[in-house]
Write a protein that binds this DNA or RNA. Structure first.
Lengths: 196, 196
DNA sequence: GGTCATTTCTTACACCTTGTCAAGGTTGGT
DNA sequence: ACCAACCTTGACAAGGTGTAAGAAATGACC
């Protein structure tokens, strides 16, 4: 993805350290400045600007970093195997685990995108996997096919957000949230509700 | 709500002008500074600070302003009359109309809250009305009562967001979005789907 | 091991925004 | 007409972002 072509070893090391520190600090305080991130990475502020043109670009790279982690978790979940409904729930669980690791970051940083289409491309790796599973479910007749795939993808993401928000706002336990998400998703997606 | 008790006439006028200018400018550019807002309101920056302790407080007041508008639109929709499902759809339509008037503002400003519970209190007037309708539907048996009201409220809000995002991202027409929202809400809420 | 380009560090600067302060003028209530 | 509340002007400090130039280091490559 990023042109890691002919970069020197210390450059890659610095970039990684900066990104790592940024993820860590921004998750405890989304307002963290470039200075603090640089210091935590054992680097000066100017080095940060040598790797990222601006603070916003750094934030974008941070989001990409976390996104890649989520995608890896999803790919480890055998999405093309078994009933589509099960695969969908496994996928949601993978997303929940990853996003649970960065509670603050994903709510604050990911929600202030610069332009709408860049934000969409940024999450494409995630939504693509969701789309595959939902399409499979519709094609095998497990899911109702009257609603468009894009819409169901958007809905699924939003329901996932709702569940984790309700859970870590303390209005539901993790189990209740998972259960509610489970049945709601299956209902909206048009799959028969097996066990409540 | 706001202590408009012993304030002088010009003070109220200034406050209103500032709030109005803030709503207008922030909806075209969420990064707008206090200076620009003050100028647009025909006032100096210091006057803004005389009314609002900080930029964040001003933003909060702006959100309250728009929220009040949405609540007024919802209250005009006879929520306690007729089938709960119809009332719910009327409520969603009222919300859509109001939020459609401030597309940028509601996506950017409302999504960077300072602390979680203040944000919740801020939207309470809206969620309360939603809650009333959903509770009524569950009590009359129109809606399935196995899912908790709080969860269904959260889901409804999120689905509404999903619909307007898909619509003004150009991935669906307004009609398609409204239709998809319609059937999805009824499914998740456990109401029988009448006409697809 | 030496050379050379890349990367980093240091220091410095310009700029913008937020938030605060004080003094003087203006407006509105009573 | 008085007095307090309000607004304005001008000025300042603090903090963050982004840029620049030169010196020092570090790694790649021969």
């Amino acid at each position: 993805m990023t042109q890691a072509r002919n970069r020197r070893a210390d450059a890659r090391r610095s970039r990684a350290a900066i990104l790592d520190a940024a993820v860590r600090l921004l998750d405890t305080n989304p307002e963290t400045g470039v200075e603090a991130i640089a210091t935590a990475a054992g680097v000066t502020r100017q080095t940060v600007y040598a790797h990222f043109p601006s603070r916003e670009h750094l934030l974008a790279a941070v989001v990409d970093q976390v996104t890649a982690e989520a995608v890896a978790a999803m790919d480890a979940a055998d999405l093309d195997t078994g009933p589509a409904a099960d695969a969908l729930l496994r996928l949601l669980e993978a997303g929940r685990r990853t996003s649970g690791r960065y509670p603050v970051l994903l709510r604050k940083i990911a929600s202030l995108p610069v332009d709408p289409k860049a934000d969409q491309e940024r999450h494409a790796p995630v939504t693509d996997r969701l789309k595959r599973v939902i399409r499979r479910g519709q094609e095998t007749g497990e899911f109702d096919a009257r609603l468009s795939i894009d819409w169901l993808v958007a809905v699924t993401v939003k329901l996932g957000h709702a569940a984790s928000e309700e859970a870590d706002a303390g209005r539901m336990s993790d189990e209740e949230a998972a259960q509610a998400l489970h049945t709601s998703i299956l209902r909206v997606i048009g799959a028969p509700t097996p066990t409540t």
